[in-house]
Simulated assay, not measured.
Amino acid sequence: MRLSKYLALGAVVPSSALVRFHCSQLVVERLDPLVDPGMVPSSHVHQIVGGNAFNATMDPKADLPTESTCTSCQFEDDFSNYWTAVLYFKARNGTYKRVPQLGNNQFEKANGGLTIYYMQDAIYETQQTSKVKAFVPGFRMLTGSPTSRSLASSLPYRQLTYVCMDTWTQRAPETMAFPTRKCKSGIMTSVRFPTCWDGKNLDSPNHMAHVSYPEEGTFESGGPCPASHPVRLGQVMYEVVWDTTIFKDEWDEGDGKQPFVWSMGDGTGFGNHGDYLFGWKGDALQKILDANCHFTSNCTKETGLKLQSIEAMNRCTKKRQVEEDIDGWLDVLPGGYHAEY
């Protein structure tokens, strides 16, 4: 398996057969209802977007569209929850400071958050050519491992990458480790989820076994699903832009060590990971996956689904359940972690 093959595919500019939208920040805190269900606080800090029914347990039988009173996502019918770990800066004196997120390209007014993609076909396709199944209520999954600290241990996840952005529109080259130079427009992380499902289980003990990446190649390259996971799903991808530029005068890139670290202590970048919990209303997501979507414009025309304003997205927030300082200059990362390289 050649890493360069996968990274090159991620650089292709999307044209059609996908929907791209933003979700503003819902809350940043130590909660993780998949890996640490019921634990308050969970092991490390996450940034969460989506429906405000998000909580420490997230009962699989809960009806998220009914239990939520708002969503921080652009589509009014999307009450799903999407979350990742949080990036911190490690200063020369050993203290840590949280790196803020930026609204992605075209969403600069958003309150941080994530940009979400649902792709029906390979991203270089110009027309929708295949049928993919939407997720169903109770479905959840994660990809990546917070304990990975090497390329070898992160390769099974294939497409968890970084772009050192010199411009807002830059999407290549991608790396699986943290960039080692100053990035003029910040660091963008991408999280691409598995696209094959066993067709039976909505979850699994490790939140991964019920889904799979293609048997060979990638979703973008048209790789086939394995026989054990025959149902082809849409590709879910997150993009997060981290404003690392505010620390540009605080470190010397000539020393060979970059200063950024994930909230669980990973200073290599290989621990990049993401969690997904489906919560679209009714058949809204299937309508999108059946349409020949291009970003959001013709998706709304073809499906009748409504978008909310960025101002409305920004208003949907949730009070932290965990009372602790995660934003000041910290001697240790929340949860007791120190940077590991």
Score class of each variant (00 low, 15 high):
Y162H: 04
C225E: 06
G186N: 03
S16M: 06
A172V: 01
L102Y: 03
I123Y: 01
R181W: 07
K301R: 14
S221F: 12
L26C: 07
K319L: 13
F54D: 03
N292M: 09
P173T: 08
N104R: 03
K301M: 14
I187S: 00
R149S: 15
K306A: 13
N52E: 05
D249I: 07
F79P: 00
L330V: 09
N104A: 12
D78Y: 04
T195K: 03
R20Y: 04
V136T: 12
K133L: 13
L9E: 15
G335K: 08
T126H: 11
V236R: 02
T161R: 05
D275P: 00
L151V: 12
V211M: 14
H44V: 06
F79W: 06
N81A: 02
S68N: 06
T268C: 09
C196Q: 10
P146H: 13
Y117Q: 02
G265V: 13
Y341K: 12
T195F: 03
E215W: 08
M58H: 08
D255A: 07
Q101Y: 04
A134H: 05
E125N: 15
D283M: 08
H294Q: 13
S148F: 10
N111S: 14
C316G: 08
G217Q: 12
G112F: 12
K319A: 15
K200H: 11
E220D: 15
Y276M: 07
N206Y: 12
C225N: 05
M165G: 00
V240Y: 01
D331C: 00
G279P: 02
L285W: 05
G267Q: 10
H46G: 02
C293K: 02
C183L: 10
L233R: 12
V132M: 05
